[in-house]
Amino acid sequence: MAEKGGTLSLTETVRERLNCAGCGIALQFDRPDAPGYVPEAARDREPVICQRCFRIKNYNDASSVAIDQDDFLRFLGGIAATSSLVVHIVDLFDFEGSVISGLQRFVGNNPVLLVVNKIDLLPRVTNLNRLRNWVQKQASANGLKVADVVLCSARRNTGFDRVVDRIAELRGDRDVYVVGATNVGKSTLINRLISDYSDLKREVTVSRYPGTTLDAIRIPLDDGKSIIDTPGIVYRSRLSELVPRETLPAVMPDKPLKPLTYQLNSRQTIFFGGLARFDFVEGERQSFTLYVSSALPVHRTKMEKADELYEVHRGDMLSPPSREQLDSLPAWTRHSLRIPKNASLDIFVSGLGWIQANGKSGAQVDIYAPKGVKVLLRDSML
């Protein structure tokens, strides 16, 4: 490392350290509005973290940074050529929205451990054995072959001993790649793994905001192998990726879900703030149970009044988000779904939650959500 006047150059000190200790991005100090920027006052800190990670850690404020997904997919494709254990973390609240499509072809013959995070969000009466069977079935339906499924809550430390045990049993003397979509709790889980497997005295950056890990972080283990924390994949089919940052606390629950059951006649509508709309178009009177964040206001009305109500009250009574923020979101797309008789199904809206259809007589329903958001019918989770 070069010296100037007998002292180390701040510029060269940062360059030698190369990567942010929080998110893994390459450090730089010339462009404050670009990823990896380190202000002059922070260049002698140990460890060195970028300005964005500093703001996340100290102010819970993450700036939006665009990541080249093609580069990430090329990186992910390299896993097949390694001998590794792949730990795929998914968000139970947004299962179909957080499963990595086509993961199997990226990882080759390497075993996959499916870690299902955020089980603390489900009602406490949930049958975990039934839930595990449901996860295995859904994983298979998404083309994913898994060595095992572990249910956990990184936030509550529930089931985490089992995650650590299964990683130890399955990895042998191999590296461990941790993969997942943004905001599934991946970095929180990584920090727990560090405390069990490594004497590394640092933590990767953790935030409620998407896109926290900006580059692969290689975390050395005591046996000479590594945990490789990869950037989260951004899926624009998740409502949580589209809404303004201020709206995230309303759609992303941080407390156990409190099911809301509505007895509906046909031709009734439910609004989820100003973000989505559910129409019970046709069918006998029946109940529908909503599994959404308790911070998201829900409003019921008649279908014949729904259009006018939305036009007049979107952004105020029907909020979040604000009217101006709604105008920046993609226009709604209608999804018409037929629920067969005697079927036990959920109407799933990625990033928002799901509606459990409880009737036995069948129903015709419409879901309106921003264009591109994943909406589908699935077997009932609960």
Rank of each mutant, 00 (worst) to 15 (best):
Q136R: 13
Q136D: 12
Q136T: 05
Q136L: 14
Q136F: 10
Q138A: 11
Q138I: 06
Q138F: 04
Q138N: 13
A141G: 10
A141W: 04
N142L: 13
N142C: 15
G143Y: 04
L144Y: 03
L144C: 06
K145P: 06
K145L: 14
K145W: 04
K145M: 14
K145F: 07
V146G: 09
V146Y: 07
V146H: 07
A147K: 08
A147R: 09
A147H: 09
D148P: 06
D148R: 05
D148T: 05
D148H: 09
D148I: 08
L151A: 01
L151R: 03
L151K: 00
L151S: 03
C152H: 13
C152V: 07
C152K: 00
C152D: 09
C152E: 07
S153T: 07
A154M: 06
R156N: 13
N157E: 14
N157L: 14
N157Q: 13
T158K: 08
G159S: 07
G159A: 04
G159N: 06
F160E: 04
F160M: 10
F160I: 04
D161A: 05
R162V: 08
V163P: 02
V164N: 08
V164K: 05
D165L: 08
D165V: 02
I167A: 03
A168Y: 06
A168I: 01
A168N: 09
